[in-house]
């Protein structure tokens, strides 16, 4: 018994270390990928000077950020100001605990995994609000207010679509949800839910076209206007890690997690399938960012309250009725 508790601890610690290392590497890679995708969409080459294909560019940028001075505005609420970047990054890491990378590669297969991940992702709103408010800067405050309104609005359709998947599987455990998609992915059974999930996830991570909390044309940089150095770096890291988590959750909820399409695994290990799909979804999010212009704030709220929430509610209702009479 004692031995088992010990091994559980080791599993957690090793998992946390791997998650931390992976989150940083992933963010470095994603920033590079984003710049490359943006470049090629605009017929530019993107970063290409530092390292092969510019791969080391983000490492150089990170080094620069680490070397910069951490400025705290004199009028800021100092404690909150310092704590906000940590607060935004910590819950993001928690997400890695329950993500089902492969059948045997889950740090902790909780029976409330889906709930845990969404409960903790709500934390980032709090961190953004804390950061924006404590900066004592009107742009930062406006960005924070917008972010809260937006996140509250888009969390509802997000959770409603997740609910319809959970209804089908009757479980909040990630491994069971993925197992249920062995033959057919849920995106084919729940196309509306999948689409709404992707849209709300883009809004949840504050990505364009829903990036009004940091709309640089109106708000300088939004909630992180006053942040510099590695504190700003942490916000950045959290954004890209959030993107990964959101895509990984989409992969396991709608795109069959570690399974190949239609039950064909083709002897490829589950983790490869999982990563392929996750990075493809991340690519789609970037592709969307460099295609569509930012939408206005009232349009954003209208879209959520008047369209996405009714549609996702109807979707949930239809799912429930169909499951009842099937």
């Amino acid at each position: 018994m004692g031995n088992e508790v010990g091994s559980e601890w080791i599993r957690l610690i090793v998992g946390a270390v791997i998650a931390l290392a992976f989150a940083s590497l992933n963010a470095l890679f994603l920033v590079w990928l984003e710049r490359k995708v943006a470049g090629h969409i605009q017929l530019r080459p993107g970063p290409k000077e530092v390292g092969p294909f510019g791969l080391l560019q983000t490492i150089a940028d990170a080094l620069k950020l680490v070397g910069k001075e951490l400025i705290t505005p004199s009028a800021a609420d100092k404690k909150l100001f310092v704590i906000a970047p940590v607060l935004i990054f910590m819950p993001v890491l928690v997400g890695f605990l329950v993500l089902p990378f492969a059948p045997e590669l889950i740090i902790r297969d909780m029976n409330l995994g889906v709930l845990l991940i969404f409960a903790f992702s709500t934390f980032s709103v709090l961190a953004i609000l804390a950061g924006g408010w404590s900066s004592n800067n009107k742009y930062a405050l406006l960005g924070a207010i917008r972010s809260v309104a937006q996140n509250v609005a888009y969390e509802i359709p997000l959770l409603l679509t997740v609910m319809s998947v959970v209804l089908m599987v009757n479980s909040l455990r990630f491994s069971e949800i993925v197992q249920a998609q062995g033959h057919i992915w849920f995106i084919f059974l729940q196309p509306v839910a999948g689409l709404i999930y992707l849209i709300s996830a883009t809004a949840e991570t504050n990505r364009a076209p829903f990036d009004i909390p940091e709309a640089e044309s109106e708000l300088v940089a939004g909630f992180h206007t006053e942040y510099s150095g590695m504190r700003f770096g942490l916000f950045f890291l959290a954004e890209y890690t959030n993107m990964f988590i959101v895509s990984a959750v989409a992969t396991s909820l709608f795109f069959g997690g570690w399974h190949g399409p239609f039950g064909f695994d083709m002897k490829i290990p589950g983790i490869v399938w999982f990563m392929l799909k996750t990075y493809f979804l991340i690519f789609v999010i970037m592709w969307v960012r460099w295609t569509f212009p930012r939408i206005r704030f009232d349009q954003l709220m209208n879209f959520s309250w008047k369209f996405m929430i009714p549609v996702s509610l109807a979707n949930l209702l239809v799912t429930a009725v169909v499951l009842k009479f099937i």
């Binding site: 470049g39 090629h40 969409i41 605009q42 017929l43 530019r44 080459p45 592709w287 460099w290 295609t291």
Partner: peptide, 11 residues
């Protein structure tokens, strides 16, 4: 935008 992804770079 996808079609532009694989068009040659003009820079």
């Amino acid at each position: 935008t996808f079609r532009r992804l694989y068009r040659p770079v003009v820079t």
